[in-house]
């Protein structure tokens, strides 16, 4: 893990000296991870692609703010998560606007539902709809990257206690859905 951090820091240093190839290597390394995180939070491939592209551009412009002793992955995940939350808010406002337009202008036919998430993967991703974005992030980081409460908290910008509670709720909801229970957490 430390070696990985050191390698990331080395690439970032090279980027700061204007080495574009180093940034390409960073992108190659984190594209899959970033897409997986974004798509599991947003449940929409197009939105996830937008978020990732914006995050890569933003990360490049803010590389000088990255602490070279820190963890690039966590720093970049935080950026992705924040952009996902912005995207969710934008989409919410957009769909609320269209809902109003639809109610007043029946000639306009708009489907406010996001792209069917099942088109991304054969598994039924509707399970994830029962989770909040924070819970989805906590579950993703725990399941895919084996993150502990402290690391999840660093990305969510909350206390480790809160992060553990989000994770607990996510795991319980998922289990309830898988088991066919109807449990409120």
């Amino acid at each position: 893990m430390k070696t990985e951090n050191m390698r990331d820091s080395e690439l970032v240093k090279n980027c700061l000296q204007g080495d574009m190839e180093a940034y390409r290597q960073i992108m190659d390394k984190y594209t899959g991870k970033a897409m997986a995180l974004a798509i599991n939070i947003l449940r929409n491939r197009e939105d996830a692609e937008d978020v990732c592209q914006e995050a890569f551009i933003s990360a490049y412009h803010n590389l000088d703010k990255f602490d070279l002793q820190g963890n690039f992955k966590n720093w970049f995940y935080t950026m992705i998560y924040n952009r996902c939350i912005d995207k969710i808010r934008k989409n919410k406002r957009f769909f609320q606007f269209f809902a109003r337009v639809k109610s007043s202008q029946p000639l306009i036919q708009v489907n406010p539902e996001p792209t069917n998430p099942t088109s991304v993967c054969s598994l039924d991703k509707r399970y994830l709809q029962t989770l909040s974005p924070k819970e989805r992030l906590a579950l993703f980081l725990w399941a895919q990257d084996s993150f502990a409460g402290e690391e999840i908290a660093a990305i969510l910008k909350c206390s480790p206690a809160t992060a553990r509670v989000h994770l607990y709720k996510a795991r319980k909801k998922i289990k309830a859905v898988i088991g066919g229970e109807n449990v409120e957490v």
Binding site: N40, L123, A143, I178
Partner: peptide
């Protein structure tokens, strides 16, 4: 959990 998440 992994079975429900879209894998990398």
């Amino acid at each position: 959990a992994q079975s429900l998440l879209i894998p990398q």
